[in-house]
Design a binder for these strands. Sequence first.
DNA 1: AATCCTTTGAAGCAT
DNA 2: ATGCTTCAAAGGATT
Length: 570
Amino acid sequence: MPQLNGGGGDELGANDEMISFKDEGEQEEKISENVSAERDLDDVKSSLVNESENNSSSSDSEQTERRPQPRPDLESYEKAREYFTEALRRQQDGGFFKSPHYPGYPFLMIPDLANPYLSNGALSPSARTYLQMKWPLLDVPGTAALKDSRSPTPGHLSNKVPVVQHAHMHPLTPLITYSNEHFSPGTPPAHLSPEILDPKTGIPRTPHPSELSPYYPLSPGAMGQIPHPLGWLVPQQGQPMYPITAGGFRHPYPALAMNASMSSLVSSRFSPHIVPHHPHGLHQTGIPHPAIVSPAIKQEPNGELSPASNTKSPGPNKKEEDKKPHIKKPLNAFMLYMKEMRAKVVAECTLKESAAINQILGRRWHSLSREEQAKYYELARKERQLHSQLYPGWSARDNYGKRKKRKRDNKTDSTPEDFSARNKKPCVQYLPQEKMIDSPASSHGSMLDSPATPSAALASPAAPAPTHSEQAQPLSLTTKPDRHHHFPLLSKPSSSSCSSSSSTSSSSSSLPTSSSGRQSTPPLLSRPLPLTSLHASLMSPHSPFHPAALHSHHALFQSQPLSLVTKSAD
DNA sequence: AATCCTTTGAAGCAT
DNA sequence: ATGCTTCAAAGGATT
């Protein structure tokens, strides 16, 4: 069973209410451990710093040459750096910083965040680091400063927060310049006060969402209270998922990443209402807003989208309409999963073709346990919720037709005759062997419940993980019509655990579900996926990608048993 | 350059 | 209510 992010099950920290902190004790233990480690910091200081500097210099000798002379607060700065280094080291050790969605984790270990001020009253470097890393948009100096972690400007003398960027900086943790005009060093307490001190360790930690609110602590219509996703980071590709109207980047789990005061800070300054000031999908830094695909999106103060053409141009033509920015749909659970896991799969499979990767991810998705999937459903739910809060007037309908017309639009083409017409490439049957092995049905004894009402089971933070019967989860394994069974099992019966076999669909037992008709396309791949591109090791059942593949051989060439479907198709 | 492919899930639309 | 379609991400492949 593949594990998420190295696998603890709570890595995302986003299925907060349900299981994210099932290992909270572990987290606390690690935090405590880090506190203890602080005592030994002097012992590890030199090594960590050396490591850091070596990496830094090796990556950028030029900046090393430019390295400014030590400043009075350099020692504290170095300490922050060490904290950061240690945090990253632990991350790399695989135990702590597991989720790229949750970049705040490492910095929870910064001990002096409990007392984030220096004796001179200035915000301590590590606290600044914490803030910086947690909300990179808020107060980062220019790019040059980003490169040079030892900014010559002492943090307490400037409202620029020095960026402690370690060479081991998690690649998924962007450092983004951002105007600091709203961030005054004179008011740091407001940023830190909401930190929730761990009752055991006394270490501040990111408020658990359940501590912030059941979901997003928004009163209806209180857009100003949106926990604005300033740190919205995208795990693998380094791009935000979708826009925040003002800030640019958002954390996937803003409620996790942003504390209340930051929320209010943001809310007062970066509410969606100011979007009209950034009509080109760029936030104040000029960073293009990822979800605002095309330029010149305009959003009314009420949050409703208002294409500029509507307000200025009486008669926008189609081209202009095509150029209209559109706010993308929030990612669903699977998309979130894919986003997180894609790079891993690509690395494991040496595959690059997304279609193949997606097939693998689809199977892996099914191989996830309910709890693991539930995390993503919960994340997706929050995504939608946040999205709706950020864009109250947005509707998925707005994006209809944004893409060029697809051939699937031709409903009339979906005749059996068209199968052959469309599929000029050889018919390839991708076997469902993996599903035979570790499908949720087989591994869990029952189908996943429908995600239709995930919140019902997930809403209560105190509620234990829902039982298999209480949460509806996707019936994905059986959601698709039988797209392959009409065709002979003929080609490329790969047993690769990392194959691009579309087992998900081929293994479907044709039980009707809510999405049964989703794919109107024929069951065949119009273009065979590059199985040959699979790495030999991945073809092996011993591949870590598919540890259960040892059992797969029996499944080959077997039609998917209906018994897999343990849930009635009601 | 644009579109396809491929996955699942959410949402919209038509019936 | 049901079923179908579109879109969300991704990037190589194809047109």
